[in-house]
Amino acid sequence: MAEASRAIRASAVRLVLNRVAYGAVTLLLVSAVIFLITSWLPGDAAQELLGQSATPEAVAALREKLGLDRSPLARYGAWLRGLATGDLGVSLAANTPVADLVATRLPKSLLLAAVTAVVSVPIALTIGIVSAMWRGRRLDRSLNVATLSMVAVPEFLIATIAVLVFAVKLRWLPALSNAVDIGSASQFFRTYAMPVLTLCFVIVAQMARMTRAAVIDQLNASYVEMAVLKGARPAHVALRHALPNAIGPIANAVALSLSYLLGGVVIVESIFNYPGIASLMVDAVTNRDIPVVQACAMIFCFAYLLLVLVADLVAILSNPRLRHR
């Protein structure tokens, strides 16, 4: 018996390690793609830095200093080594280590994402579960129309409307959220309300729709009918029976939506001038600041893979058939 349960745990561990290994390999491939694309970006950083009037000698010298004259493969190798040791290179524009730039910006982005997730996930799950429970009824139909229209509106429009209403017309909130000196809860609220609202708008709708589909899928299963025939009330059926089975698909939906957040962050940060990692990347692209672009792209991809990995692990660990094989 003990031996059997050890074997079971070993198989779950192997499954988990498998996923982690897949994630690592994917990340490596992604790094190659990022490197390839960024080295093909039009323009030359040395030229860009020195301006159009620079002498060819000066450009050549700078190229050598930046390592731009070496073969792409050698540069990729050096870059990878740097990544592994946390050395992200030096920003061409700011002439400071990329790691320092990231260190000032990343926590701000993470905070924005975390606040958004904390607000949106519970709302979305509640909407999804409630509309699944009342599927086909009026409440479900209204929520359905609401979430559909929320998905359809692009976030730059929502952000613009939010600014027009809350900042320009009502003057409740500042139009920009530069997140300097946040001392009190009210300041925190004033800074984050609009970006978070904008980001939540779209992902709540997405997550709610996917949660609804996942829960309905389970509500059609035989064991749910069985629970109904045991006299269970609708809330008990949905929360105790259907929901645990929907955790895998819901975790995936959440991961997918939160990774969508990564894209939304780019737009929202630039509209509200929020000093996060996305606006850092946008600036870097305009300046041809390749090391920063590369580092930011890696961070985004890493975040995406991490989300998907966590969703996978949640699905594996929540499922007794995979836990106890």
Partner: peptide, 21 residues
């Protein structure tokens, strides 16, 4: 009534048991 006064045994127990519990 359901599950108290009257109870039900379904055709496929494999489907009627919740796999998560």
């Amino acid at each position: 009534l359901r599950g108290g006064q009257v109870s039900y045994i379904a055709q496929s127990a494999a489907a009627a048991f919740n796999p998560m519990k």
